[in-house]
Protein backbone atom coordinates (compact mmCIF):
# COMPACT_ATOMS: atom_id res chain seq x y z
CA UNK A 1 0.00 0.00 0.00
CA UNK A 2 1.33 3.41 -1.02
CA UNK A 3 0.68 6.44 1.18
CA UNK A 4 0.52 10.02 -0.02
CA UNK A 5 0.27 12.66 2.71
CA UNK A 6 -1.23 15.94 1.57
CA UNK A 7 0.20 17.71 4.59
CA UNK A 8 3.71 16.92 3.30
CA UNK A 9 3.29 16.42 -0.44
CA UNK A 10 1.71 19.03 -2.65
CA UNK A 11 -1.44 18.38 -4.61
CA UNK A 12 0.32 18.42 -7.97
CA UNK A 13 2.67 15.65 -6.94
CA UNK A 14 -0.12 13.57 -5.39
CA UNK A 15 -2.25 13.79 -8.53
CA UNK A 16 0.69 13.32 -10.90
CA UNK A 17 1.72 10.18 -9.03
CA UNK A 18 -1.76 8.70 -9.22
CA UNK A 19 -2.27 9.79 -12.84
CA UNK A 20 1.00 8.11 -13.84
CA UNK A 21 -0.29 4.66 -12.84
CA UNK A 22 -0.97 2.45 -15.83
CA UNK A 23 -3.43 -0.39 -16.25
CA UNK A 24 -0.75 -2.98 -15.45
CA UNK A 25 0.65 -1.25 -12.35
CA UNK A 26 1.51 -3.41 -9.38
CA UNK A 27 0.82 -0.55 -7.02
CA UNK A 28 -2.93 -0.85 -6.93
CA UNK A 29 -3.64 0.29 -3.35
CA UNK A 30 -3.20 3.94 -2.45
CA UNK A 31 -4.03 6.04 0.57
CA UNK A 32 -4.26 9.83 0.68
CA UNK A 33 -3.85 11.25 4.17
CA UNK A 34 -4.76 14.70 5.49
CA UNK A 35 -7.01 15.91 2.67
CA UNK A 36 -8.44 18.56 5.04
CA UNK A 37 -11.00 19.73 2.49
CA UNK A 38 -8.49 20.17 -0.35
CA UNK A 39 -9.80 20.67 -3.86
CA UNK A 40 -9.24 18.54 -6.94
CA UNK A 41 -7.96 15.53 -5.00
CA UNK A 42 -7.45 12.39 -7.12
CA UNK A 43 -8.75 13.95 -10.32
CA UNK A 44 -8.21 12.64 -13.83
CA UNK A 45 -7.17 9.13 -12.78
CA UNK A 46 -6.99 6.59 -15.56
CA UNK A 47 -6.12 3.16 -14.16
CA UNK A 48 -7.88 0.42 -12.18
CA UNK A 49 -6.28 1.42 -8.88
CA UNK A 50 -7.92 1.85 -5.49
CA UNK A 51 -7.48 5.14 -3.64
CA UNK A 52 -8.67 5.69 -0.08
CA UNK A 53 -8.94 9.31 1.04
CA UNK A 54 -8.65 9.54 4.82
CA UNK A 55 -10.90 12.50 5.56
CA UNK A 56 -13.08 15.10 3.92
CA UNK A 57 -12.41 16.67 0.54
CA UNK A 58 -13.17 20.02 -1.11
CA UNK A 59 -14.42 20.66 -4.63
CA UNK A 60 -14.21 18.15 -7.48
CA UNK A 61 -12.72 15.15 -5.72
CA UNK A 62 -12.38 12.28 -8.25
CA UNK A 63 -13.27 14.63 -11.13
CA UNK A 64 -13.35 12.92 -14.56
CA UNK A 65 -12.41 9.60 -12.98
CA UNK A 66 -11.76 6.64 -15.27
CA UNK A 67 -11.41 3.07 -14.01
CA UNK A 68 -10.19 3.93 -10.50
CA UNK A 69 -12.04 3.21 -7.26
CA UNK A 70 -11.90 6.22 -4.98
CA UNK A 71 -13.18 5.91 -1.44
CA UNK A 72 -13.63 9.12 0.57
CA UNK A 73 -13.71 8.29 4.27
CA UNK A 74 -15.35 11.60 5.09
CA UNK A 75 -17.57 14.09 3.33
CA UNK A 76 -17.04 15.40 -0.17
CA UNK A 77 -17.30 19.00 -1.31
CA UNK A 78 -19.04 20.35 -4.43
CA UNK A 79 -18.83 18.40 -7.68
CA UNK A 80 -17.55 15.08 -6.37
CA UNK A 81 -16.95 12.69 -9.29
CA UNK A 82 -17.96 15.37 -11.77
CA UNK A 83 -17.94 14.08 -15.34
CA UNK A 84 -16.89 10.60 -14.16
CA UNK A 85 -16.30 8.25 -17.09
CA UNK A 86 -16.06 4.88 -15.32
CA UNK A 87 -14.91 3.32 -12.08
CA UNK A 88 -16.40 3.76 -8.64
CA UNK A 89 -16.47 6.62 -6.17
CA UNK A 90 -17.68 5.99 -2.62
CA UNK A 91 -18.37 8.79 -0.16
CA UNK A 92 -18.80 7.64 3.44
CA UNK A 93 -20.21 10.95 4.63
CA UNK A 94 -22.29 13.57 2.85
CA UNK A 95 -21.74 15.06 -0.58
CA UNK A 96 -22.12 18.75 -1.32
CA UNK A 97 -23.72 20.36 -4.37
CA UNK A 98 -23.40 18.96 -7.90
CA UNK A 99 -22.44 15.42 -6.89
CA UNK A 100 -21.84 13.40 -10.05
CA UNK A 101 -22.51 16.40 -12.29
CA UNK A 102 -22.42 15.50 -16.02
CA UNK A 103 -21.11 12.03 -15.10
CA UNK A 104 -20.99 9.71 -18.10
CA UNK A 105 -20.37 6.34 -16.50
CA UNK A 106 -19.27 4.43 -13.43
CA UNK A 107 -20.90 4.35 -10.03
CA UNK A 108 -21.10 7.09 -7.42
CA UNK A 109 -22.10 5.65 -4.05
CA UNK A 110 -22.91 8.28 -1.42
CA UNK A 111 -23.55 6.78 2.02
CA UNK A 112 -24.82 10.01 3.57
CA UNK A 113 -26.90 12.81 2.06
CA UNK A 114 -26.24 14.76 -1.11
CA UNK A 115 -27.17 18.41 -1.27
CA UNK A 116 -28.61 20.37 -4.19
CA UNK A 117 -28.17 19.57 -7.88
CA UNK A 118 -27.15 15.96 -7.32
CA UNK A 119 -26.74 14.37 -10.74
CA UNK A 120 -27.19 17.65 -12.60
CA UNK A 121 -26.88 17.09 -16.35
CA UNK A 122 -25.83 13.47 -15.75
CA UNK A 123 -25.04 11.58 -18.94
CA UNK A 124 -24.90 7.90 -18.09
CA UNK A 125 -23.52 7.64 -14.56
CA UNK A 126 -25.25 5.61 -11.83
CA UNK A 127 -25.65 7.49 -8.56
CA UNK A 128 -26.91 5.89 -5.37
CA UNK A 129 -27.55 8.14 -2.37
CA UNK A 130 -28.28 6.32 0.87
CA UNK A 131 -29.65 9.49 2.50
CA UNK A 132 -31.60 12.37 0.96
CA UNK A 133 -30.88 14.79 -1.88
CA UNK A 134 -31.40 18.55 -2.17
CA UNK A 135 -33.25 20.77 -4.61
CA UNK A 136 -32.84 20.83 -8.38
CA UNK A 137 -31.35 17.36 -8.42
CA UNK A 138 -31.10 15.67 -11.82
CA UNK A 139 -31.72 19.01 -13.55
CA UNK A 140 -31.43 18.38 -17.31
CA UNK A 141 -30.27 14.84 -16.55
CA UNK A 142 -29.75 13.03 -19.84
CA UNK A 143 -28.87 9.41 -19.14
CA UNK A 144 -28.10 7.06 -16.27
CA UNK A 145 -29.79 6.22 -12.99
CA UNK A 146 -30.21 8.18 -9.78
CA UNK A 147 -31.31 6.13 -6.78
CA UNK A 148 -32.25 7.87 -3.53
CA UNK A 149 -33.06 5.91 -0.41
CA UNK A 150 -34.22 8.99 1.49
CA UNK A 151 -36.18 12.02 0.29
CA UNK A 152 -35.74 14.39 -2.65
CA UNK A 153 -35.93 18.19 -2.45
CA UNK A 154 -37.74 20.67 -4.67
CA UNK A 155 -37.88 20.50 -8.46
CA UNK A 156 -36.60 16.95 -8.87
CA UNK A 157 -35.73 16.15 -12.47
CA UNK A 158 -36.49 19.56 -13.92
CA UNK A 159 -36.15 19.58 -17.74
CA UNK A 160 -35.27 15.91 -17.58
CA UNK A 161 -34.21 13.93 -20.61
CA UNK A 162 -33.82 10.15 -20.46
CA UNK A 163 -32.25 9.63 -17.03
CA UNK A 164 -34.20 7.38 -14.63
CA UNK A 165 -34.84 8.58 -11.10
CA UNK A 166 -35.81 6.25 -8.23
CA UNK A 167 -36.78 7.68 -4.86
CA UNK A 168 -37.80 5.65 -1.81
CA UNK A 169 -38.92 8.54 0.38
CA UNK A 170 -40.90 11.65 -0.38
CA UNK A 171 -40.35 14.07 -3.23
CA UNK A 172 -40.91 17.67 -2.18
CA UNK A 173 -41.83 18.67 -5.72
CA UNK A 174 -41.22 17.55 -9.27
CA UNK A 175 -39.59 19.92 -11.76
CA UNK A 176 -40.93 20.86 -15.18
CA UNK A 177 -41.55 17.86 -17.44
CA UNK A 178 -40.78 15.30 -14.71
CA UNK A 179 -43.52 12.78 -13.87
CA UNK A 180 -43.95 9.61 -11.89
CA UNK A 181 -43.80 6.56 -14.09
CA UNK A 182 -44.76 2.94 -13.81
CA UNK A 183 -42.15 0.70 -12.15
CA UNK A 184 -41.73 -2.16 -14.59
CA UNK A 185 -39.89 -5.42 -14.27
CA UNK A 186 -36.70 -4.15 -15.89
CA UNK A 187 -36.62 -1.22 -13.47
CA UNK A 188 -36.95 -3.49 -10.46
CA UNK A 189 -34.14 -5.65 -11.78
CA UNK A 190 -31.93 -2.61 -12.37
CA UNK A 191 -32.66 -1.30 -8.88
CA UNK A 192 -31.97 -4.66 -7.29
CA UNK A 193 -28.58 -4.74 -8.97
CA UNK A 194 -27.64 -1.16 -7.97
CA UNK A 195 -28.82 -1.64 -4.38
CA UNK A 196 -26.82 -4.81 -4.10
CA UNK A 197 -23.66 -3.26 -5.54
CA UNK A 198 -23.85 -0.34 -3.14
CA UNK A 199 -24.72 -2.39 -0.09
CA UNK A 200 -27.94 -0.46 0.35
CA UNK A 201 -30.45 -1.72 2.86
CA UNK A 202 -33.58 -1.30 0.78
CA UNK A 203 -35.90 -3.30 -1.45
CA UNK A 204 -36.63 -2.33 -5.06
CA UNK A 205 -40.39 -2.48 -4.42
CA UNK A 206 -40.12 0.40 -1.93
CA UNK A 207 -39.11 2.90 -4.63
CA UNK A 208 -41.07 5.04 -7.04
CA UNK A 209 -39.77 5.84 -10.48
CA UNK A 210 -39.71 9.29 -12.07
CA UNK A 211 -38.86 10.18 -15.64
CA UNK A 212 -39.38 12.64 -18.43
CA UNK A 213 -42.88 13.41 -19.71
CA UNK A 214 -41.04 14.33 -22.92
CA UNK A 215 -43.30 17.32 -23.46
CA UNK A 216 -40.37 19.69 -23.85
CA UNK A 217 -38.67 17.51 -26.44
CA UNK A 218 -40.00 19.49 -29.36
CA UNK A 219 -41.26 23.00 -28.89
CA UNK A 220 -45.01 23.23 -28.50
CA UNK A 221 -46.69 26.54 -27.81
CA UNK A 222 -48.96 24.96 -25.21
CA UNK A 223 -45.94 24.17 -23.02
CA UNK A 224 -44.19 27.51 -23.41
CA UNK A 225 -44.73 28.42 -19.76
CA UNK A 226 -42.66 25.43 -18.70
CA UNK A 227 -39.49 26.81 -20.29
Amino acid sequence: MQVLDLSKTDLREVNATLQAQRADTNQTEWVIENPRGSHAVAVGLDAPISVTVKGSTGYYCAGMNKLATIHVEGSAGPGVAENMMSGTVIVEGDASQYAGATGRGGLLNIKGNASSRCGISMKGIDIVVHGSIGHMSAFMAQKGNLVVLGDAGDALGDSLYEARLFVRGTVKSLGADCIEKEMRHEHLALLAELLERTGADAKPEEFRRYGSARKLYNFNIDHADAY
Binding site: G37, G58, Y59, D94, S115, S116, H135, G153
Partner: peptide
Amino acid sequence: EYRAFADLPGIETARVWEPEP
Protein backbone atom coordinates in the same frame (compact mmCIF):
# COMPACT_ATOMS: atom_id res chain seq x y z
CA GLU B 1 -16.02 25.52 2.25
CA TYR B 2 -15.39 22.60 4.52
CA ARG B 3 -11.65 23.40 4.48
CA ALA B 4 -12.31 26.15 7.00
CA PHE B 5 -13.49 23.57 9.54
CA ALA B 6 -10.47 21.27 9.30
CA ASP B 7 -8.83 22.58 12.49
CA LEU B 8 -11.95 23.01 14.64
CA PRO B 9 -11.96 20.85 17.78
CA GLY B 10 -14.17 17.80 17.49
CA ILE B 11 -14.96 18.42 13.82
CA GLU B 12 -14.63 14.67 13.11
CA THR B 13 -17.79 14.01 15.08
CA ALA B 14 -19.62 17.28 14.44
CA ARG B 15 -22.94 17.41 12.64
CA VAL B 16 -21.99 18.89 9.26
CA TRP B 17 -24.70 20.00 6.82
CA GLU B 18 -25.52 22.53 4.14
CA PRO B 19 -28.16 25.17 4.80
CA GLU B 20 -31.26 24.78 2.65
CA PRO B 21 -32.12 27.44 0.07
